[in-house]
Design a protein around this nucleic acid. Structure first.
Lengths: 221, 221
DNA sequence: CAATCTCCCTCACATATGTGAACGCCGTCC
DNA sequence: GGACGGCGTTCACATATGTGAGGGAGATTG
């Protein structure tokens, strides 16, 4: 089995140095390019040779982000694997990359206790076309609050404060009908399984308060 | 007026037998459960149906006392009346029951010359929410909760639990119209100064929860 | 560009809600 | 006894509420 050829793009020189030497020590990896500059990583020749690119998500000001860089590299090599390396916000990958182009994309958290073996494994599997992007808040499994629009949240918030729909309409400068539509939509999200004995508005307010209270608690962490 | 539904808990089989037959003879009383065992009296279904419980204070060794049993029954039915029956130490009721939970509690001395009519009267009044323990608040300065009928509290309690009026009507076996009247009356007490921007039902529920939560806090004192 | 999506808006309609009015039923108080 | 007050019940009626249907603007995809 030949070594997996890797392009490595990392903004931070210290981290780049460490990872570079670790990758060079591995005989499953052939590091063909390591750089901190996006435009250096866009060398078509290198990209065509590479099996996979390990790219920092935040490449610093004045440079494109790692996702855009990965997409750009795909133009020179349809089948290059892209591993996005970041400390946080790895779910932006799932949101930013068109689903059809997502084959062969992975994310790799920058954690303090990472092992080079794991990095190597992710690189090799992504090079083979495996996709492991964290199931991001897409569609079904977003939290109820995330599944509501800004204005639906505003309307629910005011309702939960005991303000009636007409006053909400006045304060938000929208029609009474619009408020009721927002409420209705919010109910669907907050009370997905309405029981015949439920007081819909109260149930919705209770779940809403529960959810926002939980958020407050998380703010403190 | 329909018969007052009673749960009777008395340790002493002899007394229980006599009282049971006396209560059964009264057509103002419907005895739905008579037992000497606290755990039998904790049947949630019976408690929910009952208007009032007549409970011996000293239920014998190995059982909780009548006050604790009464408090426990309140967990299945917030608004059940509790009449504590005892030969002595009736003032422990006032000391043991949190003041705000004391609505609808009465004491009944076990005297040799008691008339069944008196028992019936105490049961019926306690069922209606009347409180007759040593320190009963005067009519003038009653808390909002005390200014509500027992049934209004029941209706508000269920509303605050997110149950809609038709289901409340079904569970309390009263008409939908009656529920709405009770709600309306409760709103007047709980939200004395309605602002034009208020959502009346939500405001009332919030004050109600506030008031009953205060009761919970006093439990810890 | 056309096809979708998403959000927002309006309209219509079936119910639900809040409340005044009026009556019946007890108890209480002269 | 009669007047009275509180509670429960029912009725009527003006609004409020919840939701389906459908249309429009703007962004995204193919």
């Amino acid at each position: 089995m030949r070594a997996t050829r890797v392009i490595y793009v990392e903004n931070d020189p210290a981290l780049r140095g460490i990872m570079t030497s670790l990758l060079q020590d591995s005989d499953e990896i052939e590091l063909i390019l390591a750089t901190g500059l996006a435009h250096e990583a866009l060398d078509p020749e290198a990209i065509r040779l590479a099996d996979v690119a390990l790219i920092d998500l935040a490449l610093g000001s004045g440079q494109m982000n790692g996702i855009d860089l990965g997409l750009a590299m795909r133009k020179s090599n349809d089948n290059i694997g892209i591993v996005i390396h970041s400390q946080y916000a790895l779910d932006t990958v799932a949101r930013s990359v068109p689903p059809a182009a997502l084959i062969g994309w992975s994310t790799l958290p920058k954690s303090g206790d990472m092992f080079i073996e794991d990095v190597v494994r992710v690189l090799r599997e992504t090079a083979k076309g495996f996709t492991s992007v964290p199931s991001s808040p897409s569609r079904e499994d977003r939290s109820p609050l995330e599944r509501m629009t800004m204005r639906q949240r505003a309307v629910m918030g005011m309702t939960a404060a005991g303000i009636n729909p007409q006053e909400i309409a006045r304060r938000l400068a929208i029609s009474h009908d619009a408020v009721r539509q927002d409420l209705s939509a919010a109910y669907r999200v907050l009370v997905p399984d309405v029981q015949p004995e439920d007081d819909l508005r109260l149930r919705a307010v209770f779940t809403y308060l529960e959810l926002t209270r939980q958020d407050d608690a998380e703010d403190g962490l």
